[in-house]
Amino acid sequence: MNADFILAIGELGKEKGIDPELLFQAVEEALVTAYKKNFGSNQNVRVDMNKVTGELHIYAQRHIVAEVGDDPNEISLEEARKIDPRYEVDDIVETEVTPRNFGRIAAQNAKQVVVQRIREAERGMVFEKFSSRENDIVTGIIQRMENKNVYIDLGKAEAILTPNEQIPGEIYQYHDRMKTYIVEVKKTSKGPQIMVSRTHPGLLKRLFELEVPEIHDGLVEIKSVAREPGMRSKISVYTKDENIDPVGACVGHKGMRVQTIVNELRGEKIDIVKYSSEPDQYVANALSPAKVVSTEVLEEEKICRVIVPDYQLSLAIGKEGQNARLAAKLTGWKIDIKSESQAAEEAEQGAQEVGVAYEADED
């Protein structure tokens, strides 16, 4: 094995960010295997490789024992002391057994092992890099579509966007640049498998953290997120600083900040509401853009009864119940919505029932 090969291993290790010592160690292990395979030896052997010149020496190792059995890796104390009188039982005797044509075999095996070890090390580094970024956003370029899966190039790795994690109706085109949310990073025999999502609520949260400096700096906090991907989302925000409007900070000047996020999500509507520790106020805020007349909180059942103006009822409920459903998901409360006229009718009907019951008691 020549000096140029040794130099190349060192340079390659530095270039790939891998400790060259690990590559040299892997080469030595491979050479031990190559020796045993090509020369039919069951002996324990050690490879000594000069990391400057590439010169190789193979040494057979035998264990000194008081009584020799059938193990070819054992040697008697008497035989060992013929080699060196200083040997004692349990010492190791080394004898050079380097074959004359071993250099060519060594070079072939070393090349294969170096390539394999570099590939394994690169996979390990990619796994470490992306596993530490779980629950974070990555930007990639759509590489291909196969079996409804979208494969996204992240540079040194490839992410998979499965059908379940795709926004309904969203169109994915080759070479489009797109942000996704890392859900999970798995180790596989073919390298790290990075699973990403476009539907996860965390994607919306991280987009706001990236776009709104007040959230990034911790001045404004996102309390909750509710999404129906591709259709509509709601987020609730809060701040302890009385000089900051948390909703306004997220909306941005002329709606620029929220519009950037809407564009990234291909038109998904986003309602930003102010968080409140008072459930009745929080639910009222969550039903935005509908206006609420009054609320009644039933703590034990965790139900909030809401009354809205007649002309606001359909807005409060939303198309196919979407607004009320998202508000309930956002706040964690069941929401019972009625219009003012419905509430008045129920109150009147209830009063009549009380009157009938009262008269019956009188009889």
Rank of each mutant, 00 (worst) to 15 (best):
K274A: 12
Q173F: 02
T295R: 00
A324N: 07
P20W: 12
G332L: 05
I152V: 14
A26T: 12
E78A: 13
Q116R: 05
Y59G: 03
V65P: 02
S276Q: 10
V212F: 06
F208G: 00
L12A: 07
V89W: 02
S277G: 07
Q312Y: 02
V65I: 01
R133F: 08
L330D: 02
R123A: 02
N38F: 02
A360K: 14
Q116Y: 01
R133D: 13
A344R: 13
N323L: 12
L210N: 15
D91H: 13
W333E: 08
E96F: 03
Y172A: 01
K36L: 07
G332W: 09
P163A: 09
Q312M: 08
M49W: 06
Y172L: 04
M178W: 06
G13R: 05
I337A: 02
H63Q: 11
D70V: 09
Q259R: 14
R257E: 08
A107L: 14
Y358I: 15
R119G: 00
A26F: 10
D280E: 15
D176S: 15
V247N: 08
V183S: 09
G13W: 06
N263G: 07
E165F: 09
P168H: 04
H200N: 11
E296L: 15
I171R: 15
N164L: 14
P279G: 10
E346Q: 14
T188Y: 10
T260A: 15
T139E: 06
V68G: 09
E28R: 13
Q116L: 10
Q25I: 06
E242L: 14
S189L: 10
M178H: 01
R305W: 01
K51M: 12
V150K: 00
F102H: 05
E28M: 12
I64P: 01
E134C: 08
D176C: 10
N73V: 04
G40N: 14
E211T: 11
I235P: 00
D90N: 15
L56V: 09
T239W: 04
I171A: 13
G248M: 08
